[in-house]
């Protein structure tokens, strides 16, 4: 985590678990003593967005940039100007939680002037249990569409293959095969293997990527 670039863009296929990873990653960064900010740039999803955890993260000392209070549920693709502050203020470690697919990645386009200078990592979250990203070829296609829309290249992969509360080690390992193949084809490193804590503890050594145990912050306890 410490080696990742200052601006971490979390993107990927729709429903791959980007927001859950982004929120976990942000909280972990903050626990390591960093001055952290997260921006909810999801212009696609109407529910389960990181802005829903604003109060919780702010209590942890994290700066949360999200659409204005009254507009959080406005169903319009508006991004706050404050995101520019995060691009410019290098005292912050920044996580950008981007909406899914190419349509969500489009939101990155307007920050091209900042991002094209480098200084960012764009991590692609992959869940091989989703119907449209079950094979390396389909993941590669998604990555290329996202890169085109974002106008910047991806720099790493996250294997986030899961089945929610039914996740087993097999899910993670099957996803790892897909993601490692994508890694070879696209010449991108596998940066993280994320899984709920109980499954993460079982992941064997020797796989590409750092094991990243996550909590389910976004899912209500009754679900």
């Amino acid at each position: 985590m410490q080696e990742d670039k200052r601006i971490r863009i979390i993107t990927g296929h729709y429903g791959s678990g980007k927001t859950e990873f982004a929120v976990n990653y942000t909280i972990k960064l903050s626990e390591e003593g960093k001055k952290v900010a997260i921006a909810d740039m999801d212009i696609v999803n109407p529910y389960f967005r990181s802005r829903e955890k604003k109060a919780y993260m702010e209590k942890l000392g994290i700066r949360v940039v999200a659409p204005l209070e009254g507009a959080a549920n406005a169903d319009i693709p508006a991004l706050p100007a404050e995101i520019y502050a995060l691009m410019q203020d290098s005292s912050y470690d920044v996580v950008l939680d981007v909406g899914g697919d190419a349509v969500g990645a489009k939101a990155l386009g307007r920050y091209f002037d900042y991002l094209s200078r480098g200084g960012y990592d764009m991590l692609i979250v992959v869940n091989a249990n989703r119907p449209n990203t079950g094979s390396p070829e389909s993941v590669v296609r998604y990555i290329e569409e996202i890169e085109r829309a974002a106008r910047i290249p991806a720099t790493g992969l996250i294997n986030n293959t899961h089945m929610l509360r039914e996740t087993t080690l097999d899910d993670v390992l099957r996803g790892q095969e897909v993601v490692e193949e994508v890694s070879r084809v696209k010449n991108l490193p596998v940066k993280y293997i994320s899984a709920v804590e109980s499954v993460a503890a079982q992941i064997p050594k020797g796989l590409q990527g750092e094991v990243f145990p996550i909590k389910m912050y976004m899912r209500p306890e009754w679900l």
């Binding site: 429903g15 249990n129 119907p131 899961h162 089945m163 929610l164 039914e166």
Partner: peptide, 13 residues
């Protein structure tokens, strides 16, 4: 095999 789907997508499928 089981896949992970969003409700709205699953209705379509």
């Amino acid at each position: 095999a089981k896949v992970l789907m969003k409700g709205n997508e699953a209705i379509g499928a």
